[in-house]
């Protein structure tokens, strides 16, 4: 009953985008205040590719992810996911039940703060089980096999499966969060500043992990970071955001070596010089 396709999508220029985002806008409005978090953001993500979004804090890059995962409601704009209604209806028009399906089956989010993505009152294995249970897995042994599989993929010792992540280190919590995100083989994984809160030595391990998973399993992902090093390591293509707008987009090596926009030049030179 539970068949899992371990498909490594063969990236190809002719394939259709897996995600199309059009004119995504999020405005926070309260009496006397109007904050444009992001405005008219448009991009495509293709199967098997990692799209980077880089920018400083407040550039709106995390807002884009939050809107896509529907943690916050977009003010306007559309986002089409290939597997949702054949990409003909925006995921922003999904009803509550469809949204939940999107969040537990088609998409996954890895948050900067593991507390956002993990239930710390539930065991590490249980956190992964949650997504499997949502997909109607009903055998405990199979669920535990799968959970161990994901935990070992993310290099979490399997003998800690029945411990509570509240007692794990930050790096280990982040690994559990990634394991959880991979459960159910979501089509699209959203990664929000996944190494920002971690010690430098731990950051490296988490980045290597994501890179390996991407390489081995052909994960399609959008990764948001203020760190060009993270983007350089993981992203094929990159958007540069400033003040809620995309100021430049291109191949990641082009963004880093031949930035066109004044802001990007500043950003790149801050790092390399």
């Amino acid at each position: 009953m539970v068949a899992e396709q371990t498909q490594v999508p063969e990236p190809s220029a002719s394939s259709e985008p897996l995600l199309r985002v059009r004119d995504l806008t999020k405005i926070y409005e309260s009496p006397g205040q109007r904050i444009v978090a992001c405005e008219d953001v448009s991009f495509d993500v293709y199967p098997g590719e990692v799209l980077g979004i880089v920018g400083e804090s407040g550039s709106g890059k995390s807002t884009v992810l939050q809107c896509l995962f529907q943690d916050v409601e977009a003010t306007s704009g559309q986002a089409f996911l290939r597997s949702f209604e054949d990409g003909e209806r925006s995921i922003f028009d999904a009803d509550r039940r469809e949204r939940r399906e999107l969040r537990t089956h088609q998409m996954a989010m890895v948050y900067q703060n593991p507390r956002m993505g993990l239930n710390l009152m539930v065991t590490a294995g249980g956190n992964i089980a949650e997504r499997l249970l949502a997909a109607d897995w009903r055998r405990v042994d199979e669920i535990r096999d799968k959970a161990s599989d994901y935990l070992s993929r993310t290099e979490v010792p399997v003998d800690r499966m029945d411990d509570f992540p509240a007692f794990f280190s930050g790096g280990m919590q982040q690994r559990v969060q990634i394991a959880k995100a991979l459960a159910n083989n979501p089509e699209l994984v959203l990664l929000d500043e996944l190494t920002t809160g971690l010690d430098v030595s731990v950051q490296a391990g988490v980045l290597d992990l994501v890179r390996d998973i991407q390489r081995i399993y052909g994960m399609t992902a959008v990764i948001v970071s203020h760190d060009l090093g993270v983007i350089r390591l993981l992203a094929d293509r990159t958007l540069v955001m400033k003040d809620g707008h995309v100021v430049e987009s291109g191949l990641t090596d082009q963004i880093l070596e031949d930035p066109q926009h004044e802001y990007t030049q500043l950003l790149v030179n801050c790092v390399t010089n």
Binding site: P11, S12, A13, Y46, D208, L233, D236, R237, G250, L251
Partner: peptide, 26 residues
């Protein structure tokens, strides 16, 4: 388009620079 470039880089086009840009810890 960028997708075609990435595809060509993967299969048909390679640029070897003077300095190795290898990912760390591999």
């Amino acid at each position: 388009d960028e997708r075609t470039v990435l595809d060509l880089r993967r299969n048909e086009l390679y640029y070897a620079s003077q300095f190795l840009k290898a990912p760390p810890r591999v």
